[in-house]
Every structure is written in C-alpha cells, then in structure tokens.
Design a protein around this nucleic acid. Sequence first.
RNA 1: GCGCCCGUAGCUCAGCUGGAUAGAGCAACUGACUUCUAAUCAGUAGGUCGAGGGUUCGAAUCCUUCCGGGCGCGCCA
Length: 582
Amino acid sequence: MNIFNQFKEELNLLLQELSTQSILPDDLDARNITVEPPRDEKHGDIATNAALVLSKQARMKPRDLAECLVGPLTALEHVESVEIAGPGFINLRLSPNYLVAIVLDAIADPNGEYGSSNIGDGEKINVEYVSANPTGPMHVGHCRGAVFGDALASLLAKVGYAVTREYYINDAGAQIDVLARSAYLRYREALGEEVGDIPEGLYPGEYLVSVGEKLARLYGDKWLKAPEAEWLTVIRDFAAAEMMDMIRDDLASLGISFDLFYSEKTLHDSGRIADALAQLDAKGLIYEGVLEPPKGKLPDDWEARPQTLFKSTQFGDDVDRAVKKSDGSWTYFAADVAYHLDKYQRGFSRMVDVWGADHGGYIKRVQAAVTALTDGEGDLDVKLCQLVRLFRNGEPVRMSKRAGNFVTLRDVVDEVGKDVVRFIMLSRKNDATLDFDFSKVTEQSKDNPVFYVQYAHARICSVRDKAAEQLPEIDETDEEDIDLSLIQDPAEIRLIKTLANWPRIIESAAMAHEPHRVAFYLYDLASDFHALWNKGNDNPELRFIIDNNVALTRARLVMILAVRWVIASGLEILGVEPAEAM
RNA sequence: GCGCCCGUAGCUCAGCUGGAUAGAGCAACUGACUUCUAAUCAGUAGGUCGAGGGUUCGAAUCCUUCCGGGCGCGCCA
C-alpha cells in the first residue's frame, strides 16, 4: 500500500478520460508526472506536477490544464480539497480520518508487509561485495562495503528482487603465493626453527602462526627441506582456505553471510577465462597492439610494448585494456571479464558490485566488458565506498600496516557492537567519507543516530508494557472496534504522514541503490515520535495512555505500535536489532 | 595531461534521479523534568547551494567552462 501510487493510478485514469473526451491528445507521455508529498505542509497532503508536465503536449497553459483536473479530482473519494498553486501544481488534501486509517490499517495488515513491494518483479539480481583478498583478517576498511552490500541486498529483496549475495575470492594472484610463503615460514617456526623477523615482502601478522601450527600437525616435517615447487600449491590452498574461514567468522560477527563464494582460481582452472576472451575475440574486440603512453608523468620503466588488448574504448572506456601479461598469463581484468560473463550466464542481467573508492578507475572497463559480452543486455552498477576515518575522542586513530597495528573489523565490532557498526556505516552516502569516532558512536544522546532510533523503539515498548499493566481491559477491545478517528492532533498527523512515506523511501532507496536513505528516514521517524512524546509532557491529554479513556488509548497504541513496526522493519533492512529497553 | 567522485549554515551532513520560501544534527542563545524513560522536546539565530555561463514554466539537482579537494591512470589485485 502506497497512497501516492494509489493516487497516481487514479490520476492516470482521469487523464485517459480526458483523452477520450479529446480535451487531451491520445498518446500522452505521462512518465515524468510525479505524485508525491509536498515539501511544505501548507500545500496539502499530496501534490502532482501533472499539469506542468503535460502542458506542452496538451498545448494548454499549465494552470488551464490544472483547472480541467480539479473537478474530477475533487470528486474522488476521501479528497477534501483540491487547489492549484504556483505555476500549476495541483495540491490535494485528504480527509485526516481517511489518511490515518489507511496508513495504520496497512501497517497492521497481517497479510502484507508494509513497505514491501514488487517492483523487482522477481527478477534476479547479483550483489557482489567485500571480496577481500584471503590473505589476512578483515580490517575496518572492508567494513563499510560489507555492511553497505548486505543492506543493499536486503533492500532489493524487500522490493521484490531475487537477490544473490556473492563474494569473489581473489585466490589466484601473486598475493596468494606470498600468503603461502608466509604460512610456510610459520610452519617452519612451528617445527621449532628460529625464523627471526618476518622478511620484507611476506605477511608478518600473528594470525598466520596458528596456520603454521596446523600445517606442522598435518604434514610433520614433510615439507621442511622440500623445494618451493613441491609445497607451494598445497600450502597455498590450505592457507587460503584458513583465511576464508577467518573472514567468514569476521563477517558473521557483523551478521553477514553470503549465498555464494566464487573462486577466481576456478575461473582459471576451468578455462572460463579463455572462453570469455574467445567470445570477445569472435566479436572482433581483441587485438594485438601498442598503447599510447599516458599523458603527463610517465612510469619510470615505461616502454612501448605490444599487448593483447580488449577494445573497451568502443564501449566508453578511456583506453583499451590489456588482458594478458607478458608471461602469457591472464590479467586480473581478464578474470573479471570471465567472472561477470559467468554471472550473466547464471541468469543475472542485473549486477551490482561494491568496491572501495580506490578502484574507481576500473569501472568503465568492466562495464564495457559486460556491455560487449551481453550485447547490452547486462547491466552492471558499481557502487564505490569511500574511506572510513577512525577517531577516538576526536583524535584520529593512526594506523600503519607495516607496524602491524591496523584496526581489524573484529576489533571494532568487539568494542562497539554489531548494531552500532552497521548503523553508522550506513549513516552516510556511500561516496562520502565517513568519520567513525569510537566515543561518539557509543554515546547515548541524539548526536548518535543509532541510539536515537533505538531509544524511540524502546520507549514505544515501554509504553506498550505500561499500558498492559495500567489498563488491563485494553486487550478486551475487539480489533475492529478501534476508533482511529480519535487520532487528530497535528503532531500525530505529521507522524502518520511520515509513516505514509515509508514505501516511497524503500522504493527510491532500492532503485537508487542507496541504503543510507533508510537510515535517514528512521532518524526522521524517530524524531517525529520523540516530538509527540514530549508534547505529552507539556499537555497530558496528548499522552499515549489516557487513564479514563480506553478507546483513545487503544487508538494511540495502534499508532505508536505502527511506528515501532516500521522502525523494526527498517532496522531489519540495515541489519540492526531493535532494542526493547535501554 | 586525462578519467571518476566530491564542494550545501561556523562544524558534520541530508535533499525523495528537475519542483513551490534549500532542510536536520552539533556548537551558540531562550525555555520545558512531582513524566508513558528530560538519554528527550519547543523556540531563536545562522545560506550568493565553490564561481560564471547555458538548457526551461522551474536548477543544489541536467549540460558547459573555470576554481578547490580526494581517488585512479600500460602486465598489481
């Protein structure tokens, strides 16, 4: 249920009617018409720009066209008044009783999840996120993309997409050999060898110690004197699997799980990369060539060199891209081409990748590959997550990878909790940097949005319990008998209007791939609720529980329980548990 | 040099894919606690939406040129 969509349908019917009466032309393009809540309450409950958008097509002045619509709109049920404003906006005012009833009934409806919709129409969509190299534990930098991707996936599911959450394991590159060598060193250490400082170029982290110990238990001294060629593959696979276990645990601490972990290595082993590149070749998009040197500062070792290139420029990229290294192996990009083709072949025309902002330069080439391989059928949206800057009491937290004192995802979750991390990570647009202050995010004040929203939820639970205690007869009221027309105060109506907006928020957030809008909405909803609560402090008649008035109390409980429901529903999308008490 | 992202109140940020007089929070000032949790609320003040030009009924939003900041820029992942 979405009252704005509902009125848009009514409006479309009216427009058709005007077409048959030849007041409007037959083939109207109504796509740009919006039916939405006006920014200013004085403009009523629902506003439409229909007359402005259609005036050119209708060859009428906007206000004249609007005049034609006023009559039929006024005749609609529950419409209290219709006004033409400004250049030709049409503002509708609904009867307050109707507005209250339709919103609260929709939220209470056990057969429909208020806010859910089916604009996705069951279409498959693949959301790929995190995809951290399996070479160590996850650090805070991964955190944001992890939460963002997870919440986006939930959001898309909420609007009717068939979502697959996917993690691409980069287990094929040189860094995985480094992991193997690092683990091998720890293996020797576990067998009693003195290894001293970890050499430059290997991973020094303590987390590999237990991997070395496990290897020692598994293989004894079998690899101790063996050349690298003999142990590399075995230890590499073992260590990578160990790292993935660790990463899965880290993700679980954030409440994140995936439908599929996809290994880059399998792309190489199965010949899928060669297949994908052959497809591009068949389309005439692969050639041997020499790239222009980049303008400006040249890399020190730059030299003209023939390469196997993909004509990504044909699809909007800035330069053509190499798919083979000089040793004949595939580039990372080649694997990614095959990976995205594979997603498409698995039925995902729609794909979303969540990357760190430092990968921005990579977007065009992958999109070019998707367009080329799917003849434009596939759609890849890439969402970049900007940096998270850590602070403690306003002071930046210094991190250096070399010193090994970088903050891990687990450190953060252990200190402030999953819910705080998740909410804060979504409290900014993905492409804006985010400041995360350990002291601020655990503060219990409205400066902290997590707390503020949780507090509203907890307060409602508190009222609910209090009401059951104070007015036991309340439960005897039949659901049908609740008189919602008792909800009349302007602050109450404002709250109802905010609730009415929830389906629009979900829908627009999902279409824009912007889960942060949900977090901002919840803050606004909590704010409306807190405002109403405090009006009850000033004016006891506006409290939710009115001792001698069961009917009114009942109606108000329905209202605030609706708020509670929407908050819980929104938090669920964000992956945050609502608090019953604080 | 080129590409992408960003620039909105003193600070941190929203702004519903082009709508009406640009909104919150923090900080500042004024006020509300024998309460359904004051962990909150109400009010005041604060703006050339980086700058110029363009598109149109209408621009913070789209196009263009500058200015300033971030990221990236032939085989890394």
